[in-house]
Design a protein around this nucleic acid. Structure first.
Length: 482
DNA sequence: CAACCTTTGAAGGAA
DNA sequence: TTCCTTCAAAGGTTG
């Protein structure tokens, strides 16, 4: 997979990244059909089956074989026209017509079709201040933090005063008043589904495709508002930390920025970081229009003491282990070193495009396929990822690029190497290599349509089927599992 | 209870 | 430049 230009420029594009999936030709059309099927939203679950079956029928597992001959210029134009039409449809009020993820409509930035033009190049709008083209109040919109804020919570710029101009534009584009409502409703209506990737999720066209939601989503409609609830299993997933009753406690997409009750705050120590948040307080000023509970408090720890999800303080366990008095090797130097490590926050890597996609789609896959095992879910997601259109992928690449850019700005001195074993103390052995000819006695598991996946090479443990299918689908278990 | 599994992508280091 | 390794998320499973 081609990698991004690490230069950090705005021209960082997914063009190269998407080469692998650009020339999908016939398959892409099939995928498009599948996408249409998904848009049809008649049956997401069956669409998953179709998708998988299509993939199986039309291609082998070989990535190269999957890739049909390069498409013609004509098909590109057609694709471009389709994209334009689709974008036009979205802007034509369909944007907020009961998206499966109504909690994310506020990402409805004008340039919805994504930062990439149909020919794969970045659109001009995408090169500028993303998400905040109109917010004149946010004069520092181009600062990384502001971009991040906008990205993390696009609602921000709606509530930060320039609603009129924004509405003016939107009104010109869409007569539907729905977007006005959507500026606020989703946050209230779906407090339990606004995880930190909320704004990222919104980049998925799938969520904004007009039409009827899939059955499992359709059934999940707020009886009061008529607005579909986000699709998630009845049991609250980690993405939905709040129960439906705790509407008032909206998990802010800037949760890392706004400490909340019951949520850990990850203080930033000054050590090792150079001005991670240069304009943090400036941001606070502009955020004064937030409801009180959303306004980040001014920490005395650091003028830039904005917690970030990428920051994880060392666990207590580590501290306890470090205080083990049994060690005869503990020297003063070692102690100070440990102390240093103890204080040093763990800055996680920025999520890449696929990770962002996974975070968004995991709950959906779990709900559709009644899977629990992340390994199996990830396989599905991996296939779905490949089945995504390049436009859809481009959105995630773009988001990942912004994440990296901001991460770079927030933690200039940080290196991915810092998180390697030894850098943080987190032990993680490398997975053991599997033998190529290893058999898969669970091959029959793939009778389950949701699991029409590439062969899972290591399912030696009988309990795998229980995790994959659940107790209620024991008929799908393979023999050994029964 | 830490590590594994599983996916893709980014990043860093070695060759 | 290419290849390899590690980590990022997630949560059930394993030893």
């Amino acid at each position: 997979m081609p990698q991004l230009n690490g230069g950090g420029g705005d021209d960082l594009g997914a063009n190269d990244e998407l080469i692998s999936f650009k020339d999908e030709g016939e398959q892409e059309e099939k995928i498009s059909e599948n996408s249409s099927a998904e848009r049809d939203l008649a049956d997401v679950k069956s669409s998953l089956v179709n998708e998988s079956e299509t993939n199986q029928n039309s291609s082998s597992d070989s990535e190269a074989e999957r890739r049909p001959p390069p498409r013609t210029e004509t098909s590109f134009r057609e694709k471009a026209r389709e994209s334009l039409e689709e974008a036009a449809k979205r802007q034509d009020g369909g944007l907020f017509k009961g998206p499966p993820y109504p909690g994310y409509p506020f990402i409805m930035i004008p340039d919805l079709s994504g930062p990439y033009l149909p020919n794969g190049s970045l659109s001009p709008t995408a090169r500028t201040c993303v998400n905040v083209p109109l917010d004149l109040h946010l004069t520092s919109c181009c600062s990384p933090l502001m971009q991040y804020l906008q990205m993390k919570w696009p609602l921000l710029d709606v509530q930060t005063g320039n609603l009129q101009s924004r509405q003016a534009l939107k009104d010109a584009r869409s007569p539907s008043p729905a977007h006005i409502v959507s500026n606020k409703v989703p946050v209230v209506q779906h407090p339990h589904h606004v995880h930190p990737l909320t704004p990222l999720i919104t980049y998925s066209n799938e969520h904004f495709t007009p039409g009827n939601p899939p059955p499992h989503l359709q059934a999940d409609i707020d009886p009061k508002t008529g607005i579909p609830r986000p699709p998630h299993p009845p049991d609250i997933s980690p993405y939905y930390p709040l129960s439906p009753g705790t509407v008032g406690q909206i998990p802010h997409p800037l949760g890392w920025l706004v400490p909340q009750q019951g949520q850990p705050v990850y203080p930033i120590t000054t050590g090792g970081f150079r001005h991670p948040y240069p304009t943090a307080l400036t941001v606070n000023a502009s955020m004064s229009r937030f409801p009180p509970h959303m306004v980040p408090p001014h920490h005395s720890l650091h003028t830039t003491g904005i917690p970030h999800p990428a920051i994880v303080t060392p666990t207590v366990k580590q501290e306890s282990s470090q205080s083990d008095m049994g060690s005869l090797h503990s020297s003063k130097h070692q102690d100070s070193k440990k102390e240093e490590e103890k204080k040093k926050p763990h800055i996680k890597k920025p999520l890449n495009a696929f990770m962002l996609y996974m975070k968004e789609m995991r709950a959906k896959v779990v709900a559709e396929c009644t899977l629990k095992e992340s390994a199996a879910i990830n396989q599905i997601l991996g296939r779905r990822w490949h089945a995504l259109s390049r436009e859809e992928q481009a959105k995630y690449y773009e988001l990942a690029r912004k994440e990296r850019q901001l991460h770079m700005q927030l933690y200039p001195g940080w290196s991915a190497r810092d998180n390697y074993v030894g850098g943080y103390g987190k032990k993680k052995k490398r997975k053991r290599d599997k033998q190529p000819g290893e058999t898969n006695e669970h091959s029959e598991c793939y009778l389950n349509p949701c699991l029409t996946l590439p062969p899972i090479t290591d399912l030696s443990a009988p309990k795998k089927c229980r995790a994959r299918f659940g107790l209620d689908q024991q008929n799908n278990w393979c023999g050994p599992c029964r």
